[in-house]
Design a binder for these strands. Structure first.
Lengths: 333, 333
DNA sequence: CAATTCACGGCAACCGGTTGCCATCATGTG
DNA sequence: CACATGATGGCAACCGGTTGCCGTGAATTG
C-alpha cells in the first residue's frame, strides 16, 4: 500500500489491461472500451474500471496500442542543422502545436547530409504518424517517402506535398530595394548548400529583382551554411567588385563579418553584408546584422497543423521582412 | 514488375513476413529466423528467404518487433533548451554514438520547465529503451523514472544513477585563480535556474575557491539562462561592488555584455565577465567572451555509451578548461 | 548396418492491446 | 402481457512479428 507500483514482490511486471479487467471483474474488451472508448459502456462500469486502473497504476502499453492501428501519435521533425538557432525556433513552434494536438514530436538532425536525413527518416518512419521535413533530399527521395507517411515540407515546394515557405520572392525584392536605395549596383550572393531548395529559390528571386533594378549580381559558392565557411565566402566576395553581399543565412553572414574584420575591411563602409533568418547572434555580432527575418516558429506551428489536417491549404507562404541593422550602409565611393 | 512495391492494385498493403514466408515456401518462423537470427537456419534457406524478402520489398514492422521484446532500439534525449547551442553539441555527440551502436536518438526540448520535461519523458518512455537527461526534475521524479527505464544524467549526480559531469570544482578553481591573478577581490556569481544541479554545484565550487583565495563572492539571481535575462543580471551586478562577474552560462553572459555596452560600462575595463559552455557566439560577441568550455559533444558520446553498457563507470567527470578571451582583464583601479 | 546426434524447419503460443459481431437483459411500446 | 428495441458486456480474431519446443531426416559414429 505504500508504493504505488505492484505488490512488493520482484521487479513487478507492468500492469496490463488483463490485470485491470480481472480485478474489475469484467472482460478485457469491456475494460479496454471503458478506458479508451467511453461512450460504449455504461457510466457505472466506466467509473469502476477507471478506479481499478488507477488503483493498480495501469499504464496502457503504447506499443501494443500502436500495433493494430499503426498510429503512434508521434510526429517526426528532421532539420538539417540542430545547432542553427533558426531551426530551434522551428522546433519550438512545431513542438508547441504538436503537444496541443496531443502529439509527441521527435526531432532528428541530418547535419546537412541527405544520406543521414534519409537514414533518420527510414528509422523513424515506423514510429511516427507523419513527418515535417526541412529537407535536403532530392525530389525523388521525397516522393518515395510520401507514400509511406504523410509529409509536409519547410522551405521547399514539390507538387502534391503540402509546404510552408518563406516568401523568397518578396524578401528578394526587399533586400534588392534596400541595397539599391543605398546606392549599390554590384552585389554578390553567397550561396548555401547545393542541395538546398531555399538557396535555389532565393537565388532566382535575387537574380530577377537585380535584373529589374539594373543591379549586377555575382553568384559565389556554394558554401556550407556555417560560421567557419564565412572566411572563404568573405574572401571570394572581396575578389569581386561587389559593394554588398547577401549571404544564404546568418551563420554564413556572421562568419563573413568575422573574416572581414580580421582582414581589416570596414562594414558597412567598404562592404555591406546581409544575412538571412535573424538568428540569435545577429543582434550582437559586429556590426549588428541586417538580415531577412524568418518566422520559423510560426512555420513550425503551421506545418504541424497541416500534417494534422487542421489546415487544408497546401502551400502557405510566410512573410520574411527585412530587418535593417548596421551591417548595410551607403555604397563606398 | 515495374515498381518495387506490391501489385499495382490499390494502396498496396505493406509486405509482411507472412507474405515473404508464403512466397519463399517456408513457415513464418523460418522466415523470421532467416532474417533476424541467421545462425538458426541453413545458409541455403537464409539466402533464399533474403532474396524473396528483397524482391518483395519487405520491411519488418518495427512496432510489431518491439511488442514482444519491449525494445525499440531508440534512445531518448531531453535537453532543457534546444535553442542553446551548448545542447546542440550534446545532441551531436549523443546522436553519433547512438547511430554507431545502431540506435536512433529522439530528442525533446523541455524549455527549462520540469513539468514539460516530465511530460516528455512520460510520452517517450514507452518508445525508448533508455534516457539521457539534462534534467531539471527533482530527485524524487528521477528516481521514479529510473525503475521504468534506464537513465543516465548529464551535469547532475544522484546515487545509483550513472552520470557525466563537467568538473565544476576544477573549473571553479581555474576561474577564481584567473580572476585573482588579474587582481579581482570581489566577484559576483549570476545564478542560473534554481532547479539546475549544475548551478548549485558551480556555485558551491566557486564559494569554496573564493574563500580559499580570500575573494568576496556575491550571489545574484537566480536568472533564466537566456540572453534576455542578461539585462537584469547586469544591472544586479552593477549594483554591487564586484569588479568581475561569473555567469551561469554564455547565453546569460552575452546578455550581460549587451546590457553593459548599452549602459556604457567598459568590459573588461570597468567589469570583467566570465561565461560558461563556450558556445557559438562566445567568439564574436563584444568583447569575445572568457568562458569555461564544456566538452558537451564528448559528454553526449559518453552518456550514450553508458546507457548502452559499453562503459561501466558510473560517474564520469570531464574537464572544463578556462578559455581566456577579452572579456576579463585587470581589476579597475 | 544400426544407433546416436544434431541441424533444420514447423506448429503454436505469446506480446498487449482493439474491435466486429453476437448474446443478453432491461426498457419501451402496442 | 407479448414483442420490438437499444444499451451493454463478452467472445474471439487480429495487428505482425518472435521463440520454445518438438519432429524429421541426414550425417556421424561404433
Amino acid at each position: 500500500m505504500d508504493h504505488s507500483d505492484g505488490a512488493g514482490s520482484g521487479p513487478s511486471r507492468p500492469v496490463t489491461i488483463y490485470d485491470v479487467a480481472r480485478e474489475a471483474g469484467v472482460a478485457t474488451s469491456t475494460a479496454s472500451r471503458a478506458l479508451s472508448n467511453p461512450g460504449r459502456v455504461s457510466e457505472r462500469t466506466r467509473a469502476h474500471v477507471e478506479e481499478v486502473a488507477r488503483r493498480l497504476g495501469y499504464r496502457p502499453n503504447r506499443i501494443a496500442q500502436a500495433l493494430p492501428s499503426g498510429r503512434t501519435r508521434m510526429l517526426g521533425l528532421v532539420v538539417p542543422d540542430i545547432a542553427n538557432p533558426h531551426n530551434a525556433r522551428l522546433i519550438r513552434g512545431a513542438e508547441a502545436q504538436a503537444a496541443a494536438a496531443g502529439y509527441t514530436l521527435v526531432i532528428a538532425d541530418s547535419q546537412e547530409q541527405p544520406e543521414l536525413e534519409a537514414a533518420h527518416v527510414e528509422r523513424l518512419a515506423p514510429f511516427v504518424d507523419g513527418f515535417v521535413l526541412s529537407s535536403r533530399v532530392d525530389d525523388a527521395g521525397l516522393h518515395g517517402l510520401r507514400d509511406r507517411r504523410p509529409v509536409v515540407l519547410f522551405n521547399r515546394t514539390l507538387p502534391e506535398l503540402p509546404s510552408v515557405c518563406v516568401d523568397f520572392d518578396d524578401s528578394g525584392r526587399q533586400v534588392v530595394e534596400h541595397l539599391t536605395s543605398l546606392g549599390h549596383r554590384t552585389v554578390a550572393y553567397l550561396r548555401g548548400p547545393a542541395t538546398s531548395w531555399a538557396d535555389a529559390t532565393r537565388r532566382a528571386a535575387l537574380a530577377a529583382h537585380c535584373r529589374r533594378h539594373g543591379v549586377a549580381l555575382t553568384l559565389l559558392g556554394p558554401f556550407p551554411p556555417t560560421l567557419e565557411a564565412g572566411a572563404a565566402a568573405a574572401d571570394a566576395a572581396l575578389a569581386t567588385d561587389a559593394t554588398a553581399v547577401i549571404a544564404f543565412n546568418d551563420l554564413l553572414a556572421i562568419g563573413v563579418l568575422q573574416r572581414l574584420e580580421h582582414r581589416g575591411v570596414a562594414v558597412p563602409g567598404a562592404l555591406s553584408v546581409v544575412g538571412g533568418d535573424d538568428i540569435f547572434g545577429a543582434t550582437f555580432c559586429r556590426p549588428p546584422l541586417t538580415t531577412l527575418a524568418s518566422p520559423a516558429d510560426q512555420a513550425g506551428r503551421t506545418l504541424v497543423d497541416m500534417l494534422n489536417g487542421r489546415i487544408d491549404a497546401t502551400e502557405v507562404v510566410l512573410p520574411a521582412p527585412l530587418v535593417a541593422r548596421d551591417s548595410t550602409g551607403p555604397r563606398r565611393s
